[in-house]
């Protein structure tokens, strides 16, 4: 464990908690892409299948359970509890355009042609594009509540910190996870446009982010 990965995991946890509390307290999921949240729940499900088969550390197990519970709880809030506030017409990204290529690639480019490995690879590739429906929804509606932008900021920052973690681990352990690193770079690049808007718009106190 290194400081970059610990900070990254904390940013990830903060992002997920920010979103969950925003929906829970405002009793509304307006402006939130349910599709992205379903994709994240799928990412955690396919990645954490080893939860019961291999014990790494208490921290690892606890965080996996927390991420899974919060991911499914958020999907529950969006599609069941507060479904009347869900903007399904704005959440129109065709997720099959993500799932099919990601599934195909996970069969082609993986470390081992075994079910758990293919599913883990699928989760890595899927995570790099899972935020696209949310980013697409914001460009479609032309705006995002400031709390949603804070959620996206921490979510984008978490994988950027993981990139630093992988540089550090390569420097100290002499190896790197090519699939995770390439996907992590792609994932972080998708946030660059958002980061620019976040720093120029939201942090200047203009509250809501309105796209030009």
């Amino acid at each position: 464990m290194n400081i970059f990965r610990l900070l990254g995991d904390m940013c990830h946890l903060v992002a997920i908690i920010i979103l969950f509390l925003k929906i829970w307290r405002s009793k509304s999921c307006a402006g939130i892409s349910g599709k992205s949240q379903v994709l994240f729940a799928l990412v955690f499900t396919t990645r954490y299948l080893d939860l019961f088969t291999s014990f790494i550390s208490v921290y690892n197990t606890v965080m996996k359970v927390v991420f899974l519970v919060l991911a499914y709880a958020t999907v529950y809030l969006i599609y069941l509890r507060f479904r009347s506030t869900y903007n399904s017409e704005s959440d129109s990204f065709r997720v099959e355009f993500l799932l099919v290529p990601v599934a195909g690639l996970s069969f082609l480019e993986n470390y081992a042609f075994a079910p758990l490995e293919i599913l883990w690879t699928f989760s890595i590739y899927l995570e790099s594009v899972a935020i696209l429906p949310q980013l697409f929804m914001i460009t479609k509606t032309g705006e995002a509540e400031s709390i949603t932008t804070h959620y996206l900021f921490f979510l984008g920052l978490y994988r950027a910190l993981y990139l630093a973690n992988w540089v550090w681990r390569y420097h100290t352990e002499g190896f790197f996870d090519q699939i995770a690193v390439v996907s992590g770079v792609v994932q972080t690049i998708f946030y660059c446009d958002f980061f620019y808007l976040y720093f120029t718009k939201v942090l200047r106190g203009s509250g809501k982010m309105t796209l030009p």
Binding site: R5, F67, Y111, F175, D177, I179, A180
Partner: peptide
């Protein structure tokens, strides 16, 4: 080569 899966990350 130096590429293999990291197993201890979330």
């Amino acid at each position: 080569c130096h590429r293999r899966k990291v197993k201890d990350e979330l």
